[in-house]
Write a protein that binds this DNA or RNA. Structure first.
Length: 575
RNA sequence: GCGAGCGUAGUGUAGUGGUUAUCACCGGGCGUUGCCAACGCCUGAACCCGGAUUCAAAUUCCGGCGCUCGCACCA
């Protein structure tokens, strides 16, 4: 028997299918789990959410958008850690079918389980008589690798370079950091966003749109100087109560409700930029129509947190599947840029920090006199010079033995060096920027907008469905309805519709079939916020009625005013 | 990946070996109708795929694919 929530999900899912919003992909070929189509109505919903998201961040002023390939060479994802992290081995118990990560099973028998292949892992498991933690038996299948990335090859003729479909868009921002930094003329902080597809070959996708194999992501990488002091002005949110579930550190996790500035002051949130982005993220999610009471922030527990993150929060949304993480906001430290620097030897992934006051350095050096050192040591002269310059202690007597980098030593005469005091100004230093990353799962967010907005009600004893989508994401802003398709009403309706869709960003459709009530119902079902009706009065005086979806109230205005109100996005002020 | 259940028009469904495959909503056309799924007539649309058993399969069996739930997995 299905729970009420189950019924609700089924009902919403069948509406989404029926009305061409979101539905399983490739179904005429049997379907593929974890892949979905956004149809004629849904695609515009997705596009509007993406555009609202872009606007939200771009309007901060120091954030730019980029767009990177989804096909990513293996070396990039090796550097980022995804090849290894996504290459865990799993051991399955023959007796009870439980599955465990192989490296976890042998933790106490091997110091570096990550380096082993499946045969070695299998050997260690059997040689040490590892028992199944679940049933205690010792009957294991051979460990199998579980790589969650889609592999591919670059190049059409055999061979080619190994690559994967990207598991996140973030790497695109990290590897193009040099260009982004140049764009901002080397002034931190700045950020880059990217909206696009990510791919994960899930073992078993579940929960409809919640875990997909190809999904829409939107990520911001915000680069900061770890030593910079950030203003903690969160006063814009003084009237907002946030729900937090802080890291319980082994204790019970409890929801607490407080202002975000208090959460930061009491060090529940550990970094001001993280706090700011949490608040901004909350604003965005609410602005596109989510129910604020169904939003909360959960802090990752220390052992759940990715190893590079120093503070990590999930924004969770509540819906028919319970609380689902929809946004991850992570302070990733310098992990990502450093990883690419190490892998590529690039020196472009650093930023320059000018000291407020240059540091003056006075020191004694033993400077080689190259007219003597050169002819004396010939091809070793450069090594000798380097060794002299890096001496910490000045020679007190001559000749002395100088140890070179290659382990050999040479004898240095007094006439070969000039011991002198030098003056140096250190104006700043290079460092690897830290990064704070809000990463949005757009499909999950859209699911929750649909879920929060989905109302099953009754009209005259019959089930009546309304999708309360926010106007700034609704696939159609308006529908134009002639009361009847006769006496010229149809023509007027078409003219008004044509005018409306010529306005920028406005989409409206014409519907003239069946009764007026049915057409209102069809529009309510796909969340059209405004219905414009042309009736006999329109023919007489040019006024039309505007019906508001959310309460079905109507007003009458001239059709010139209609165009005016729609183009200024202010129909709501009429009610 | 394991176990259980399931797969029938666009949607939701009925159907235990022989039916013209049920019903409702839905879509299209015509008529009618003075504003919230009205009505009449006409019309459209389905047994997941493949194999086997059988005179005969939506129905039984096998395999595949998909869905739901539980276990596991989910940087």
């Amino acid at each position: 028997m299905l729970s009420d929530e189950g019924e609700r999900v089924n009902s919403l899912v069948s509406l989404l299918k029926r009305r061409g919003i979101i539905f399983p992909a490739f179904s005429i070929h049997g379907g593929v789990a974890g892949l979905f189509d956004y149809g004629p109505v849904g695609a515009r919903l997705l596009r509007k959410v993406q555009n609202q998201w872009r606007e939200h961040w771009i309007s901060k002023g120091n954030i730019v958008e980029i767009d990177s390939p989804t096909i990513t060479p293996e070396s990039v994802l090796k550097a980022s850690g995804h090849v290894d992290a996504f290459n865990d081995h799993a051991s399955e118990c023959r007796s009870c079918n439980a599955i465990f990560r192989s490296d976890h099973l042998i933790e106490s028998h091997h110091t570096n389980p990550d380096s082993l292949d499946s045969e070695e892992l299998g050997m260690i498991i059997s040689n040490n008589g590892i028992k199944c933690p679940s049933c205690g038996e010792q009957q294991w299948h051979q460990p199998r690798p579980m790589n969650l990335m889609f592999p591919t090859r670059i190049g059409a003729t055999g061979g080619g370079r190994a690559a994967y479909m990207r598991p996140e868009t973030a790497q695109g921002m990290f590897v193009t950091f040099p260009m982004i930094q140049r764009h901002f003329r080397n002034r931190l902080p700045f950020g880059a966003i990217q909206v696009g597809k990510g791919y994960r070959n899930e073992i078993s996708p579940r929960q409809g749109m919640i875990r997909q194999r190809e999904f829409n992501m939107a990520e911001l990488e915000y680069f900061i100087d770890p030593e910079a002091v950030f203003e903690n002005d969160l006063s814009n949110w003084n009237d907002t109560r946030f729900q937090f579930i802080p890291d319980p550190k082994g204790g019970d996790s409890e929801t607490i409700e407080m202002m975000i500035s208090d959460a930061l002051d009491s060090n529940i949130i550990r970094h001001p930029v993280v706090a700011k982005f949490m608040a901004e993220t909350y604003d965005f999610i609410v602005s596109i129509g989510a129910d604020p009471s169904k939003i909360r922030f959960r802090q990752h527990e220390s052992d759940e947190m990715a190893h590079y993150a120093t503070d990590c929060w999930d924004l969770e949304m509540f819906g028919s599947y319970g609380w689902i993480e929809c946004v991850g906001i992570a302070h990733r430290g310098c992990y990502d840029l450093e990883a690419h620097e190490l892998a590529t030897n690039s020196n472009e992934l650093r930023a320059w920090r000018e000291f407020s006051k240059p540091i003056e350095v006075e020191k004694m050096v033993a400077s080689p006199i190259s007219s003597i050192v050169g002819p004396t040591f010939r091809e070793r002269a450069k090594d000798v010079g380097d060794a002299l310059m890096s001496l910490d202690e000045m020679p007190t007597s001559f000749p002395f033995n100088l140890l070179l980098d290659d382990g050999t030593s040479v004898s240095i005469e007094e006439n070969m060096v000039e011991v002198k005091q030098i003056h140096d100004m250190i104006r700043g230093e290079w460092f690897i920027p830290h990064v704070v990353e809000p990463a949005f799962g757009l499909d999950r967010i859209i699911w929750h907008l649909l879920d929060h907005g989905y109302e099953i009600t009754e009209k005259e004893g019959e089930e009546y469905l309304i999708l309360h989508l926010s106007e700034n994401v609704a696939p159609y802003e308006l529908v134009v309805l002639p009361l009847f398709e006769k006496d010229g009403m149809s023509e007027i309706a078409h003219q008004i519709r044509t005018k409306l869709i010529s306005l920028s960003g406005i989409n409206a459709y014409y519907d003239g079939s069946k009764s007026i009530g049915r057409r209102y119902a069809r529009a309510d079902e796909i969340g059209v916020p405004w219905a414009i009706t042309i009736d006999y009065t329109t023919i007489e005086d040019g006024t039309i009625t505007v019906r508001r979806r959310d309460d079905q109230s109507q007003i009458r205005i001239s059709h010139d005013d209609l165009i005016q109100y729609v183009s200024t996005n202010s129909l709501n002020t009429l009610f």
